[in-house]
Amino acid sequence: MAVSGFEGFEKRLELHFFSDDPSIFQLGLRMIDFESIQQVLEAVQCTVVSAVGNSYFDAYVLSESSLFVYPTKIIIKTCGTTQLLKSIHPMIHFAHLLGLTLCSCRYTRGSFIFPKAQPFPHTSFKDEVAYLEDTIPSNLCYRKGSIMPSKSSSHCWHVFTANDGSHSRSHSHMPYDNDIFTMEICMTELDPILARKFFRRADDGKTGDSAGKEMTELTGINEINPQALICDFAFDPCGYSMNGMDGDWYSTIHVTPEEGFSYASFECVGSINDDIVHVLRKVVQIFRPGTMSISTTWNEVCNNEVWKQMASAVEPLGLKCRSCAMDQFPAAGDVVFQTFTARRKSA
């Protein structure tokens, strides 16, 4: 293990807003001007490298991961030593100018590879929760912070939710659907040969956009959801990010391929009606990780069958389920955290 390297593990923040004026919902947060978005990202310490929108949402590839802007929802995911929680204050401010009020906040992350390199408030989960408690308005009164364990002390899932208990669902632009979940996958110890594909060739004469497109095709990332429109970017000398858009559903992948601290993440919105087995197997085949965690967030009560299905999807590919933890969050659904390790490394 390297003494210090790039922190692949992302911090993820999801904020939901509401308004008493339904006409605001149609465009909502998408009306925030770009200078304001830049200010939010400056607070976090990252920038936009590429972006695309469809009729449902805007997707930005950032210098450190991704940003998704829906009319009443924003998802920011940032890696490295970014200060993600510092985006909450400016976001609440700019949303307020549009007549939108915060009604739900969810913060999640895995366990950092280099925790000592993190700046405040990301110095510890305790510091993060204290910062969140201070920053979030008092109307979000249903709150809970939880560290979900695995068998290995170095792999935990950190979750903090805050909710006003009333607006988050009824004012969502999407119809409330019990079958929809968000799946966050974190992978470490990537297969070194596969990880090489996320390095650029020196002087390839390509732009980050065109090199990214090449990686998407070369690695088979475009086959995870062939219907999705992909906005991809390859960093110099290595690293890759992509956002997928399929109607109002997003997916996103980020790769830090350097040996010693290699990391890849995959996140998507899924439905029990999807071919989740295909998606999971494809992701595992692209990276062949030594360790993988899947955390699944449900709107309401989780469907036991699906996370069992997830485990049985990846087990034939040599990943063994080592732990499974579940927790409930007040007015913010259930989270299931599963960890897997490759059999080849079980010795």
């Binding site: 998408r30 695309v52 929108g53 805007d58 930005y60």
Partner: peptide, 9 residues
């Protein structure tokens, strides 16, 4: 489109 953030970018 007027509502597209990436277009403003």
């Amino acid at each position: 489109a007027s509502w597209c953030g990436p277009c403003r970018f």
